[in-house]
Computed example of a mutant assay.
Amino acid sequence: MIEQVKKYYNGKLTLINNIQGEYEQEEISIKEKRLMNTSQFGDEPYDSIDEEEFAVLEDINTLKNLMAFAEINSFKEILLVDMTENERYEVTQRIINNLDKFHVKPVGYEIKKDSIVIAWYLNSVINTFTFSDQSTALND
């Protein structure tokens, strides 16, 4: 898991939440095969233009190693870069100590001078349609 996360982020990510044991390559292969067997490929006739446009993505069928990154650069309307070193340290520690409050637990973070980068490993394998459908929730 650590290798997968660092493959997509080149910074100095501090890993959290004991993620090492949660990732098995063999399980990913099994999950990918199951998704490919249960999901249709895009060679079917379509009823609408929208379905036809999605056909190429259905031919991809699965996406692997879905990750998300976020950057925090302020706290209570004050930029981290504008804080004193002591203020920034206290705020940073408060944020890091509360990362486990997210419903989806982050796998790591990096503390920079002007921000904190947070990383989530969301899914080892996901169907393209499921990803496309669920990612619209991120627009809120």
Rank of each mutant, 00 (worst) to 15 (best):
M1E: 08
M1T: 12
M1R: 12
E3I: 06
Q4Y: 14
V5S: 13
V5P: 12
V5M: 15
V5Q: 11
K6Y: 07
K6A: 06
K7Y: 12
K7D: 06
Y8A: 10
Y9R: 12
Y9P: 02
Y9T: 02
N10E: 12
G11I: 04
K12W: 05
K12A: 08
K12S: 14
T14E: 14
I16R: 02
N18Q: 13
Q20L: 11
G21F: 07
G21V: 04
Y23V: 12
Q25Y: 11
Q25G: 07
Q25W: 10
Q25L: 15
E26H: 12
I28C: 09
K31C: 06
K33L: 07
K33E: 07
R34T: 00
M36D: 00
S39L: 04
Q40I: 01
F41N: 00
G42T: 06
G42P: 06
E44V: 06
P45N: 10
P45L: 13
Y46C: 06
D47H: 13
S48N: 13
E53K: 10
F54N: 04
V56K: 10
L57S: 06
L57N: 09
E58F: 01
E58R: 10
D59C: 10
T62R: 00
T62P: 04
K64A: 06
K64W: 03
K64M: 07
L66A: 13
M67T: 05
A68V: 09
E71M: 06
E71V: 07
I72G: 00
N73D: 10
S74H: 13
F75P: 03
F75L: 01
F75H: 13
K76E: 10
K76L: 02
K76Y: 14
E77M: 01
I78L: 04
L79Q: 14
L79N: 08
L80D: 01
L80G: 00
V81Q: 00
M83N: 05
M83W: 12
M83H: 09
T84G: 03
E85P: 03
N86M: 01
R88N: 03
R88T: 10
Y89V: 14
Y89I: 13
E90C: 02
E90M: 06
T92W: 01
T92Y: 02
T92C: 01
R94Y: 15
I96Q: 03
N97C: 09
N98L: 11
L99I: 02
D100I: 11
D100W: 15
H103N: 13
V104I: 14
V104Y: 14
K105Q: 15
P106G: 11
V107R: 13
V107P: 09
G108M: 12
Y109T: 04
E110G: 02
D114P: 05
V117L: 15
V117C: 15
V117F: 12
I118Q: 03
I118L: 05
W120L: 03
W120V: 05
Y121G: 05
Y121D: 04
N123E: 09
S124F: 01
N127F: 05
T128N: 08
T130L: 08
F131R: 01
S132T: 07
S132Q: 05
Q134G: 00
S135Y: 09
L138Y: 08
D140W: 12
